[in-house]
Amino acid sequence: MISDLFTVTVFVGILASGIRLSTPYLFAAIGEAFGQKSGVLNLGVEGQMLLGAFAAFYVALTTGNLWLGLLTAMLVGALMGLAMAYVTVNLQAEQGISGIGFYLFGLGMSDLLFQKLMGTVETVKGFPKIHIPGLSDIPYIGEIFFSQNILVYFAYLLVPIAWFVLNKTTLGLKIRAVGENPDAADSLGVSVARVRYFTIILGGTLSGIAGASLSIALLNVFQQNMTSGLGFIAVALVYFGAWRPIGILGGALLFSFINSLQLWMQVLSIPVPSDIAVMMPYVVTILVLVATVSKVRAPSALSKPFERGD
């Protein structure tokens, strides 16, 4: 029944679930935003996430050390970023297509390693929910905000940090300059290549964490293609958020809330065909964007390779 939706349990459930589900999107999308702000479109996020997810899981499984797993995921993500940076900055390859190539590589490679090193689905004890004495016990609020795993808090901490770096630091200024007008930035002595290397590797690292947040915090398993399109949604959310961390947060939450809502609708037997329910978060995301026509322009040099002395 529709009225079943309007209960405290459902409301709290949706909020808690939305915050949890938004975690991987936040890491990946904020990483992608850094790249795009500097003029690089990376469609390979999903592949970086998958390799990160596998690396984290495998290391955590074999060493029992979750932090070491997380670190490996960051390293693997950074390496993927490094390769992407070389291809798009030095070789000036078409960014969108390179990204698709890296996506396919990550998709296949993570699965191959999984089959060769593990062979079957296993589980690991992931990052536990953090119990904050006092706060976690507040009714409702505690369940929503104060009983999540550590990576959820990292993701939310990342939002103000990313905002600060992009808007209040010289580094952020350089990133934006390189993305808006690389020629001018270059003539002012900013190394376009170095800035782009930095943002792409940072993006890869964050995608690696996004993968780890799935495999050793949220789901605690690894299986082939376990991200199942999440990385592409993350890229889309960058546009939703108009390259601003706070906007990305809004998009990630909206998408996750609606997704959680449709799960609840089915659980409460509201008579909507399951396929139609699953469609909801995608439809709503588009509709919200249509309703709030954005005035923000894309970085001018987005997806355009830079060559000195052109």
Partner: peptide, 12 residues
Amino acid sequence: NVNYIGSFSDIP
């Protein structure tokens, strides 16, 4: 309560 998630692969 039954929940069909619309996919054979969406683990999250």
